[in-house]
């Protein structure tokens, strides 16, 4: 079987007008190797930067990809599975737990996880749990349940780690920053697939990473990644940037506005 993988990469972001399609060069295959060659995976995004305005209410990101050298028989019986993820920039995250102390609810326990993605969207051909057969999911950290959540520092009672991990995932899913769509990847032809990832309204800006994984009978056989830069634009973002990058000037401006407002009011409403 000789398949010429054609790559379509469409970034179907509602808020943006995008280039319709993009064909990427494909590694040439040597003739005669068709039977032994490994399956390959290719993906692409039409743009590696997304500008989001402050009235952004969330959108769908569509990524097209193709499986090269797929065994048609295995493809027909659904032995290939594709998982596409979009990972946000990584940072520390602290989960805190409240308890009633002397009648008042206060944070008593906390756990900080190392370098976890601020946002995470996953789309797959099937339920990840159904897919899971080997240790490969854990080793590559695909899926919300397998995202490495390593606590910082020494945890005396290791029994609570899973409790905090579960709470972290639940809170992140609740806030929309973590999303999963078990039917988000669909085959549009025998080897061409389309993945829809949800970009939440509160998507953090910074370097995101689109990753695609190809599983054959539950085992990871190929993996691709491409960066995606999310840049927030607009006045609100400019203010937020100024507050963080030029805090002195920003603070001075805040005080100046207050002085002008207060002084102005006493001039306008002066009763003489």
């Amino acid at each position: 079987m000789r398949l010429f993988p054609r790559l379509f990469a469409v970034c179907g972001l509602a808020a943006l007008s995008l280039a319709p399609a993009l064909a990427l060069p494909v590694a040439a295959q040597l003739p005669g190797e068709a039977s032994t060659v490994k399956e390959g995976l290719e993906i692409g995004v039409s743009s590696n930067e997304i500008a989001i305005t402050s009235d952004f209410r969330g959108a769908d990101l569509t990524i097209f990809g193709a499986i090269a050298n797929a065994d048609e028989l295995l493809l027909a019986i659904g032995q290939y599975d594709v998982v596409v993820t979009l990972e946000g920039p990584r940072d520390y995250a602290t989960v805190r737990k409240k308890e009633r102390v002397l009648g008042i609810w206060m944070n008593t326990e906390s756990m900080t996880f190392q370098q976890v993605p601020e946002s995470y969207s996953i789309a797959s051909t099937r339920q990840i749990d159904d897919l899971e057969q080997g240790p490969s999911f854990n080793s590559v950290g695909v899926g919300l349940e397998h995202l490495p959540l390593d606590p910082v520092g020494y945890i005396r009672n290791s029994g609570v780690i899973s409790e905090f991990r579960d709470s972290y995932r639940r809170l992140k899913l609740g806030s929309g920053l973590y999303q999963r769509d078990t039917s988000g990847v669909r085959f549009v032809s025998s080897s061409l697939f389309r993945a829809s990832l949800r970009l939440p309204a509160n998507i953090p800006d910074g370097q995101h990473m689109v990753r695609a994984y190809l599983f054959k009978s539950g085992a990871l056989i190929s993996q691709r990644e491409t960066p995606l830069r999310v840049v927030k634009t607009g006045l609100e973002q400019a203010i937020s940037d100024a507050a963080h990058n030029r805090p002195f000037a920003y603070g001075f401006l805040c005080v100046l506005i207050a002085v002008v407002t207060g002084w102005g009011a006493s001039l306008i409403f002066r009763k003489d």
Partner: peptide, 16 residues
């Protein structure tokens, strides 16, 4: 004193 909706909360960034 009222029981919060969720006794867990998440804060991003910074080491604590």
């Amino acid at each position: 004193v009222v029981t919060p909706d969720d006794i867990y909360s998440v804060a991003v960034g910074g080491l604590s």
